[in-house]
């Protein structure tokens, strides 16, 4: 999370006590994964699917965009809307990733997982209860590939910005100067 409240030592300690780093895979500064599978409460499957469909390009994406840490995220209802699969690839460690979310967007987490079985009554503000819920849906990831494991989201954005600036500079360099019109050039040749 880029701005707002700082992650407190207390929150981070609660998260760390669940030893997430021993569970989820990390390939570098720019490549960690979280894969979670939870059962959806009976009768809530269609609602969960429709909420996911509606959330595209709205608060969800804005919230993720603002996180500046998430490379890719997939969230889908599967098995005839009975289960909820959540896969995320992000920078840093799973500890800081979840601690960030817990502090900055508890309401968002409540919306994402609130229709799942076992979600704590106190929601994401119940840090310990939320972490127990998260770990209950842990899916071991056997193979995790990252093409650029050390490039963080911010680095990728910066590199793309540099590419654009370089191209603009190249374009300026490659432009024929006004003095070198075709006519001028043929005069030079004649001389």
């Amino acid at each position: 999370m880029s701005a707002g409240k700082a992650v407190t030592k207390e929150t981070l300690e609660v998260v760390k006590s669940f030893n997430l780093e021993g569970l989820f895979k990390t390939r570098g500064a720019g490549a960690s994964e979280v894969t979670l599978l939870h059962n959806i409460k009976e009768g809530k499957g269609a609602e969960q699917r429709e909420w996911l469909e509606a959330v595209i390009n709205t608060d969800w994406e804005l919230s993720l965009w603002g996180s500046e840490e998430i490379h890719f995220l997939r969230a889908c209802t599967i098995n005839n809307d009975t289960q909820f699969l959540f896969c995320s690839n992000f920078d840093g460690t799973p500890d800081t990733y979840l601690a960030d979310f817990l502090v900055h967007s508890p309401e968002f987490l409540d919306q994402v997982w609130g229709r799942c079985e076992g979600y704590p009554e106190g929601g994401a503000r119940d840090f310990k209860g939320f972490m127990e819920f998260i770990v209950s849906g842990y899916v071991p990831c056997q193979a995790f590939f990252a093409a650029y494991p050390d490039a963080t989201v911010k680095q990728v954005w910066r590199a793309l910005d540099w590419e654009k600036k370089t191209r603009d500079f190249q374009r300026e360099l490659a432009r024929p100067t006004p003095s070198r019109t075709l006519e001028e050039s043929s005069k030079q040749r004649a001389a």
Partner: peptide, 13 residues
């Protein structure tokens, strides 16, 4: 082609 040669080679000969 003439413009491109001018840009790349500095001449459109």
């Amino acid at each position: 082609l003439a413009q491109a040669a001018e840009c790349v080679y500095g001449s459109s000969n």
